[in-house]
Amino acid sequence: MNIQYKKGVLELCVLSLLKRRDCYGYEISEYLSKHIDIADGTVYPILRKLRKEGLLSTYTQEESGGPPRKYYSLTNLGHETYEKERSEYLKFAKKVELLLEDGFDDKE
């Protein structure tokens, strides 16, 4: 699938994961590539973009037996944006699904 096309949806998936819990970059990358077919390297530009837009904030946390990890967490703006875009996307996806149905008839 076209990467530009996927990008917006990927952003939404990242937000939905971070809504549940804070994650570090690698976790997010693993989570997405487990469910969606993308190159692993694609996630980091998205994280950076969301942070630039103020939807995410970061903090570092020491880990036992490893380098400190950079955690991403949702800001208030991130929460609001996620809820808004989630409902918009679901509405849109439902419509597209309907339109792509084999027996779809425009004349009603």
């Binding site: 990467i3 590539s33 190159a39 692993d40 390297g41 694609t42 980091y44 530009p45 950076r48 630039k52």
Partner: peptide
Amino acid sequence: EIAAKLGNPVLIASQFESIGDE
């Protein structure tokens, strides 16, 4: 293997560019 799964560095860098640095 890891590098191959990450993707082409040129493409990755261009994704950062398209985001636009402040």
